[in-house]
């Protein structure tokens, strides 16, 4: 299945349009999605530090999705690098 992921903060530098689309096997976990995104960025956005995806969280508009969660179908996700508000 195709998963669309919106990019924020330093990860915006990875794509001028502000999102990436990944082909993800059905039933994948967020931990597996994290590996797929890290591999994708290593090829398509080598300027992004390799550790940044490891330190980032995945989320829907409602909540943070931790590593053990299944990748939800049919909704856009967001990948959130370490936060620095205030």
């Amino acid at each position: 299945m195709k998963i669309r992921i919106a990019l924020y903060g330093a990860l915006r530098e990875a794509d001028a349009g502000g999102h990436v689309e990944l082909e993800v096997p059905p039933g994948s976990s967020i931990a597996e999605l994290r590996e797929l995104l890290a591999a994708y960025l290593a090829v398509h956005a080598p300027a992004i530090p390799a550790g940044l995806v490891r330190r980032s969280a995945f989320a829907s508009a409602e909540e943070i999705l931790h590593n053990h969660r299944a990748v939800p179908e049919g909704i856009e996700l967001a990948v959130l690098p370490p936060v620095s508000g205030g």
Partner: peptide, 9 residues
């Protein structure tokens, strides 16, 4: 971009 705090558990 500032360093920041990870939201990943």
């Amino acid at each position: 971009w500032s360093e920041g705090c990870s939201l990943c558990e």
